[in-house]
Design a binder for these strands. Sequence first.
DNA 1: CAGGTCTTGTGAGTTCACGCACAGAAATAA
DNA 2: TTATTTCTGTGCGTGAACTCACAAGACCTG
Lengths: 298, 298
Amino acid sequence: MDNWGEVRTAFQVALHGTVSGAAEALGVHHATVIRHIDALEAQLGAKLFQRHARGYTPTEAGEDLLRVAQATEDQFNQLQGRIKGRGEGVSGELVVTSLVGMAGMFAPVLAEFQRDYPKVVLRYLTGDRLFRLEYGEAHVAIRAGSAPEQPDNVVQPFFRHPFALYAAKSYIEAHGMPAQDADLAKHRIVCHDDLNSRAPMYRWLRQQVPESACFFRSTDLRANTEAVVAGAGIGFVPVWEAHRHADLVQVMAPRDEWASQLWLVTHVDLHRAAKVQAFLKYLKSHATQWEKTCALHD
Amino acid sequence: MDNWGEVRTAFQVALHGTVSGAAEALGVHHATVIRHIDALEAQLGAKLFQRHARGYTPTEAGEDLLRVAQATEDQFNQLQGRIKGRGEGVSGELVVTSLVGMAGMFAPVLAEFQRDYPKVVLRYLTGDRLFRLEYGEAHVAIRAGSAPEQPDNVVQPFFRHPFALYAAKSYIEAHGMPAQDADLAKHRIVCHDDLNSRAPMYRWLRQQVPESACFFRSTDLRANTEAVVAGAGIGFVPVWEAHRHADLVQVMAPRDEWASQLWLVTHVDLHRAAKVQAFLKYLKSHATQWEKTCALHD
DNA sequence: CAGGTCTTGTGAGTTCACGCACAGAAATAA
DNA sequence: TTATTTCTGTGCGTGAACTCACAAGACCTG
């Protein structure tokens, strides 16, 4: 049963009882209506209407079609209402993705956002692979590093994520506190597994310490943080994250060159959606708050 | 939400995930599919798909449309199956119409037909006005008189409905039995109200008796029959009907010139339907039986 | 890295479906 | 009856929608 348009035409004919009435309702010429009915009947191999000078009277098959098409029109109208009204309110699904490392920072914000917009179903995706906006896998992504420049993505700077060098109290008691940058080479360093990492803090670290000083290496920032907390050595920990661990001692204060720039990325098709805008506004208002919090504890 | 064809196109795109796949499934060029999607999105004012080089990924709205269109396609397929299979079996409605006078003769036959085809819903329409086949008011009509010649109706002779002159026993006892045709003029005659009636028996009667002899006149054959039974005079009664009244005496035996020809009439569009054919076959097999019955009692 | 094979997207040519203008038939009104 | 209106039905010309052809991008594979 292809050609749904012809079904719609037949539906209007059954509704009005005349070809002319259906033609007027559909905004087409009555000859078109006649052709549609003829084609549909030829395809089905059955008469849908009895033709006479006063109009078209539906047969049993025509009445059957009338019922089905009536239901279809209702469903399409409801669908149209849902789709047109979808963008207006803040509801539906909102899929956010970021690196795993930022989960601890974002989770409270996401929870608060959901308190303000209870109708939104939040999905927070974190994983090894990058979830790609262009395939519709996520609506909003928080990305780190240099400004992503993909054509269909709208990118805006979020905030600079401050890092500082930390160590556990136990480690400092055992190995002492480095006085200046050059002293780091004599310490046990916790760093990224890939020594060629493009993260600015690790590029800085590679210039300061030899590879042999990197005693603990992991691809995961959180694992590194845990290692530092456990006293494995000195390593970069997000300032925000460090606040949660009373045992940590700040070895060196955060520097701007260590900070990693965070970006808010959305797909251009969804950027204007009300719920996306609401979420972005929410995130940005918290960004300034985070920056203040981090600055306070420097 | 007009243009159901575009909805169907969008449905196929959501189903296949690619424009090319949908185009192949629909049997059209992929450029057509793209234009349909663009038009639909423009009309709805919302994106249905995320475009990327690997295909189209449905958004929330697109998935909503997918669900609705899936249900629609299912219903259309079921509808097509019903319509295509409708003509094969003997089921559904069967609307039969005839003059009221023949109800007593047909009712038992209709009941028997329904016993053989229990899935058929029989509607037997009788009324003052003629139910018109061309408006779909009835599938089969039994008509009397000269052969109807309407273009869209297929007409076939049914059988000749025999009439005879009857009177009540009480009337004969009071007025005696007419020996020959000319004697009728001296009797009380029950006849049709319209003296110019085209029925052959009444045209014959008008030639035999003066208007003054017609003491009881009615437009309804059944009323005339009742009048004869009640002893109002001599009148024409269907042979078949007369058998049901023990009080009636046959004044003159049935003649072929009195009989009224009955016709089976069906609309050309429905004539080939299985249920109509089954009913016609059934009626015709009973016609010969009726003729024998009538002949027996002459 | 290069080649092949999917995609989507866009401008140009062509066809098919639509609109127009009639004709015919039936019901209503005068 | 005749006139009028309102239907359906059909041949014909035109334009919108389709097909075609080509370009560009993404992904996989050797």
